[in-house]
Simulated assay, not measured.
Amino acid sequence: MNKLELEYFAAELGARLKQQGWYLVTAESCTGGGVAQAVTSIAGSSAWFDRGFVVYSNAAKQEILGVKPETLNQHGAVSEQAVLEMVKGAIAHSRAQVGVAISGIAGPSGGTYDKPVGTVWTAYAFPNNTYAVRSYFSGDRTRIREQTVISALQRLLQGV
């Protein structure tokens, strides 16, 4: 991952959030807090970053963010439905107006025919818009996680 690119996206996101008077919240599974780490590497991020949730297990997704057990049973953690519930729960349990939630299969194992390694669902919440996007990334575990973080920052920038 290009560190300068990552810093640029995080700094630009922070500037735009601060300009709007908005806060960001993250709810991350496969990235393990990578988006939160990227944005908190920017000095002064406490002015626009509220908090981050790392919810790796299904139990954590349910207990902390209110993801419904039936959602996980019917669709799995790596699904549009799960990340939408994650981002809504993150917004509800924070002071943020903007949120991102990520769940995916970073590998090297865990993939299936329907959800191969590299499948990532990301949900975004903005004051007037909430949506989810499915992406497919390639490479090893580290590369998939890096690509996911960059992609999330880019889409957050597009929405702010």
Rank of each mutant, 00 (worst) to 15 (best):
L72S: 10
R95E: 13
S41E: 14
I105V: 15
R95C: 12
V78N: 07
Q19T: 05
G89W: 08
P108A: 11
V78M: 01
V67K: 06
T122W: 00
A43D: 11
G76D: 01
V54R: 04
E63H: 14
R95D: 10
W22Q: 06
L72A: 07
V87K: 09
K61S: 12
A123K: 01
P116H: 12
F126K: 09
Q74D: 14
A47R: 08
K115S: 13
I64T: 08
G110A: 13
K115V: 10
E70L: 10
V39D: 05
V78P: 08
T26H: 05
A92V: 01
K115L: 10
W121C: 08
A90Y: 01
S41L: 07
N73C: 05
I102A: 13
V78Y: 01
H93W: 03
Y124D: 01
G99R: 12
T71K: 03
A60G: 02
R95A: 14
Y23P: 00
G118Q: 11
D50C: 06
T112E: 09
A101I: 08
S46E: 14
S79L: 02
Y113K: 13
T122L: 07
E63R: 09
T71D: 10
S41G: 15
E85F: 03
E85N: 07
Q62I: 15
T71A: 08
A59P: 00
T31P: 02
L72M: 10
T40R: 11
